[in-house]
């Protein structure tokens, strides 16, 4: 595989504004219960401060996708040129096996069409030379598209706290973890 596209998530910049999730909804008009991109609030156990921190997560387009391995009708495929994991809804029989298999909760059941669906990394937009709708919508550049095989940004993590560690699946996502706030004590000034 020449490239492996994935998301770059900068938790130091993310405001939790939901622009990415809204852009995804505007692009694909999924039913109300179907959410391809979710904003996860980090718990106090991980980020113990009053100002909040977030992970904006969708499908991680893993190197060895659990959904692709679980699907009995081969509705999933991984593109050779960029590693994007695509779900072919025409083949899907709605068994829900991929939903159970994916540890990141990416595949979602669409009760209207009675089939599964997930983030496609906007492959049609990629083929047209555009970035995914969520990346374009981020007002603070906290979300970006990178080639994880070439990207070597210092300070990024594959499995930060609050994100399940599945080495075998090798999710194509890189995180900038939240920075702990600098506390200033007035009495020491």
């Amino acid at each position: 595989m020449s490239r492996q596209l994935g998301f770059y998530i900068d938790s130091q910049r993310c405001l939790g504004c939901f622009s990415c999730a809204m852009a995804c909804k505007n692009q694909y008009h999924q039913p109300a219960t179907v959410v391809w991109r979710r904003i996860y609030d980090l718990s106090e156990e991980i980020y113990p401060h009053r100002n909040r921190s977030f992970y904006s997560l969708a499908c991680n387009h893993c190197e060895k996708p659990a959904c692709l391995e679980a699907c009995p009708v081969s509705a999933y495929r991984k593109r050779e040129n960029d590693g994007v994991v695509i779900h072919d809804q025409a083949k899907c029989i709605g068994c829900g096996n991929c939903i159970r298999a994916c540890p990141f909760g990416a595949p979602q059941y669409n009760p209207v069409v009675k089939k599964t669906e997930k983030c496609s990394l906007c492959w049609q937009r990629l083929d047209a030379g555009l970035k995914p709708a969520c990346v374009d919508a981020c007002p603070v550049k906290a979300l970006d598209l990178i080639d994880v095989l070439k990207s070597d940004t210092p300070g990024t993590l594959r499995f930060p706290a609050g994100f399940p560690q599945f080495d075998r699946l090798n999710p194509s996502v890189r995180f900038v973890p939240p920075r702990m706030p600098h506390l200033v004590r007035r009495d020491l000034l």
Binding site: A70, C71, P72, V73, C92, G96, Y109, V113, K114, K115
Partner: peptide, 19 residues
């Protein structure tokens, strides 16, 4: 199954799928 008639195709992915 969301589409029970499609169940007949469910042995297509013997290479990977335990189902």
């Amino acid at each position: 199954l969301g589409h029970p008639t499609g169940g007949v195709r469910s042995i297509v992915n013997l290479r990977y799928s335990w189902l």
